[in-house]
Design a protein around this nucleic acid. Structure first.
Lengths: 353, 353
DNA sequence: TTGAAAGCGCTAACAC
DNA sequence: GTGTTAGCGCTTTCAA
């Protein structure tokens, strides 16, 4: 009885097909310089023997690891899982990322890193060091963090940066935040709203600014004032404070766009407490469209972030970089959709334009 | 410039500490036969150089891969992600599994396998072959699938079987389904209900039977009839049909326990359509407690499945097996909790016991 | 177009 | 208690 379970290796395939190890390796990796008939012979041996390359061995021998890391903030991710409020950001990343990886013989590994403290570097290096991934997917705010970006670049790892257009290593992927905010605002304007408030996201997120810009642009096009802007931090509490501030304005909004689901829910609950009817007295649009806003009463009209699509794109480009060696690439964008639900309606009569 | 990025390896550490490779290896793996002072010297070199063992190399050299696979049904998982209804089963597995893995220097990898078709074997072998994990975590119905279990056993892989007590390889982990159903039923009895219906889960899931048993036992203890049992398949449609059947009984239930959230929601919606008030006319308890039931109107009392805790336990035991070589182990159980919410109340007056 | 040889970083077995 | 010697399965030279 063998000490270690002896699986089918490249050696067995080579022997079976009557070729060298190298030829088998070439076939596995779709490399040139193999005659079609040879390739066919090898492939049939592979199938017959049920050979599957061992990723660890591929990593040891070569330079590719066929591993892509999705780097997520540890505390935030865990909190999301523990809250059980249906936040499915991670799931959508997996949906887009894992399936795309699978199609290319890659594996997506979810990695939680503690990016709060000053030991980012150590955390990152140990994740990177243990796995040596070919690429990593970064989301805000890490996607714009110079310390993280520099470190990864020094390691020669491909970087997909979601939600950041700051110059730096890697390539950028966005979800058309400015345009989405613009369309959300235009939707409200089309419904007849003339006083449209906006609750911004945390200011250290680039996309927070883009969304404000889109909102402003739509208002400007319609000749409306953009005085109803309140700062927020994406979370429930800051959303509640922002909504309160907006509603306390001399000429309050008949519609509010919130830069996150949590802030939108906070706005909705504040409205309910004050007897402000949604959507009759106040329309609400949220950003993100995680499940919680679909279960809200009323369900919220929302900007649906194409997270899965962007994650898929990130993986595609990382894999492409392994081949092309990292050509400088233009930022790419996947448009978000505005999903209409019951939280938006024409403004009350007295406010009609 | 080096062809391949030359990271810190065990060799550098050995040189730095002035010991052999093997001694470093022993320290890394907490093996015996190293003098404390040697170990300390090695550890300080490790820290100084920032050495991190490369998992792929550990796998190549030794017999452990430090990888644990969470094997999930491909279609079901993807459907859950795409529906965006907040089902967080996968997340809870990750929460419990990943964090526990992390504490032991292991990695949890989520693997989707297409278990429908007849090529289960091929799918499984390629996942297993590429990664050679030390263990896998199986959930129903895979955790009781002889084809899957046999294959994994032949590969010498540790198996954590959640929700199955069928004899076979690996060890079983349950969530106290019978007891949970019993307690849910007792809660209703304590509220005064005497006609308590039960919607069972798919009959090919072992735990479906356990839950029915618990319900029956509680009824028997209270001297109540157990005639209000309806079959279900866990999904919304079957839940709706089952609820309709129960409500059509000559002496209909004043409370219904559903074996899944989807079936409970179906029951709730059917009740609403028929003008049956929940909880005034009908109490409802669901099994699983995914986010959707918390957002329901009214929020549902539910049996909260300790998925994260069980996943953590699964990982612990798989890792323990690497050391003890797979001693036969008793099935272990983590109790589910009954989370009280607004969907349960005393029955209408006329039905009071 | 193909093959042979030399590692990749680590651990297992065996010596000392 | 510690060091030495072989590999693990694959890819990368480089030679044929």
């Amino acid at each position: 009885m063998p000490r270690r379970r002896q699986a089918v290796t490249i050696k067995h395939v080579a022997a079976d097909a009557g070729v060298s190890l190298q030829t088998v390796s070439r076939v596995i990796n779709n490399e040139p310089n193999v005659r079609p008939e040879m390739a066919e012979r090898v492939r049939s041996s592979i199938n017959r023997l049920g050979y599957v390359p061992l990723i660890a061995a591929q990593r040891m021998g070569g330079s590719k690891s066929r591993l892509i890391l999705s780097l997520n903030d540890r505390d935030r991710t865990i909190a999301g899982w523990q809250n059980r409020e249906g936040t499915d950001w991670v799931d959508q990343m997996l949906l887009g990322g894992m399936l795309t990886c699978g199609r290319h013989g890659y594996r997506l590994i979810l990695e939680l890193v503690d990016t709060h403290s000053d030991h980012i570097e150590r955390e990152l290096l140990s994740a990177i060091g243990a796995l040596r991934p070919d690429g990593v997917i970064l989301t805000p705010p890490h996607s714009q963090d110079p310390a993280i970006l520099d470190l990864l670049e020094r390691q020669g790892i491909s970087i997909a940066r979601i939600g950041s257009l700051t110059p730096g290593p890697g390539f950028s992927l966005t979800m058309g935040d400015e345009d989405a905010a613009r369309r959300a605002t235009e939707h409200l304007i089309a419904l007849g709203h003339r006083r449209i408030g906006f609750i911004a996201g945390a200011s250290d997120y680039e996309l927070s600014g883009w969304r404000v810009t889109g909102w402003r642009a739509a208002l400007a096009d319609a000749g409306l004032a953009d005085d109803l802007l309140a700062p927020g931090q994406f979370d429930y509490e800051s959303g509640r404070a922002a909504a309160a501030a907006l509603l306390a304005a001399g000429d309050p909004p008949t519609a509010i766009i919130a830069s996150s689901d949590q802030m939108a829910i906070a706005t909705l609950e504040l409205a309910r407490e004050r007897g402000v009817s949604v959507p009759d007295d106040l329309s609400i649009i949220s950003f993100d469209d995680t499940p919680i806003v679909r279960f809200a009463q009323p369900p919220l009209t929302a900007v649906t972030q194409p997270i899965a699509a962007v994650a898929a794109l990130a993986v595609e480009r990382i894999i492409a970089e392994q081949a092309d060696g990292g050509q400088p690439a233009e930022p790419q964008s996947v448009a978000a959709e505005l999903t209409l639900r019951a939280s938006t309606a024409p403004p009350p009569e007295r406010n009609r334009g």
